[in-house]
């Protein structure tokens, strides 16, 4: 998701733009326009070349990959479980040092 413009305070410099639609199901253009944008872009040859390169990667079993990813997640959770946090510690949602 691209970051969305906030409403702002209506100042001169903050002109509301149409909401950007980064989601796959909420694209700003039609499929036909989208295909045209890609095909007419000078990057098209680069993209097709690169897709061929990435396809050369060794295939792996998706189930094994998912199990490995879940195991990594569990290991991380177990590591955090060994940490003690004082009860009055709030999450770090502010970063304005």
């Amino acid at each position: 998701m691209a970051r969305r413009p906030e409403a702002g305070w209506g100042g001169r410099a903050i002109r509301p733009r149409p909401v950007p639609r980064g989601n796959l199901d909420r694209m700003t253009i039609t499929r036909r326009k989208l295909a045209a944008a890609v095909l007419t872009s000078a990057a098209a040859p680069l993209v097709s070349q690169a897709v061929a390169q990435t396809a050369a990667q060794t295939p792996t079993n998706p189930d094994d990959e998912l199990k490995a990813a879940r195991d990594r997640l569990k290991t991380n959770i177990d590591t955090l479980a060994r940490q003690t946090v004082p009860m009055d510690t709030e999450p770090a949602f502010q970063f304005k040092a």
């Binding site: 149409p18 950007p20 980064g22 796959l24 295909a35 890609v38």
Partner: peptide, 16 residues
Amino acid sequence: PTTWGARPYAGQVFDY
């Protein structure tokens, strides 16, 4: 196009 380096977003276009 702004692809985020990823095939599922290869045709993504923003208007800003």
